[in-house]
């Protein structure tokens, strides 16, 4: 069993219901999820924890709060930036990309490296 697969059986909640398969792409790589899954859940089930790199420092980030408060899981979906992976359901044909380091030519001073 992979470390982060789906919890198919649960002693109290029962088995996972049958759901149809949805295909999407993350950073250009074709992937599968189940209907009704969030982007964050589908990627975690596939073993992907890093959802973006910090815009300036480039440190990898993944989900933190999982309910839309912290904005750590923001990704680009079909060209729209800043979409919270934890609140957004995967849809057929979705193109999802991780955030990367952005150039900051206008920033003066800034943080010490």
């Amino acid at each position: 069993m992979s470390a982060t697969g789906r919890i198919e059986e649960h002693p109290i909640l029962g088995p996972l219901p049958e759901r149809s398969v949805v295909t999407f792409r993350f950073n250009g790589v074709p992937m599968q999820a189940y209907q009704g899954e969030t982007i964050a859940a589908a990627l975690l089930a596939a073993g992907i924890r890093t959802l973006r790199l910090h815009e300036e420092k480039g440190t990898p980030r993944g989900i933190y709060c999982n309910i839309g408060h912290c904005f750590e899981c923001r990704v680009t979906v079909n060209g729209r930036t800043g979409i919270r992976a934890c609140l957004t359901l995967v849809e057929e044909g979705m193109e999802i990309t991780a955030g990367e380091i952005l150039p900051t030519p206008l920033k003066k001073g800034g943080h010490p490296a």
């Binding site: 982060t4 697969g5 919890i7 996972l16 969030t38 975690l44």
Partner: peptide, 14 residues
């Protein structure tokens, strides 16, 4: 809480 939601709501192992 993130782990709780991932486990019981989304049913994905953290």
């Amino acid at each position: 809480g993130a782990a709780q939601v991932m486990t019981n709501v989304h049913r994905v192992r953290v």
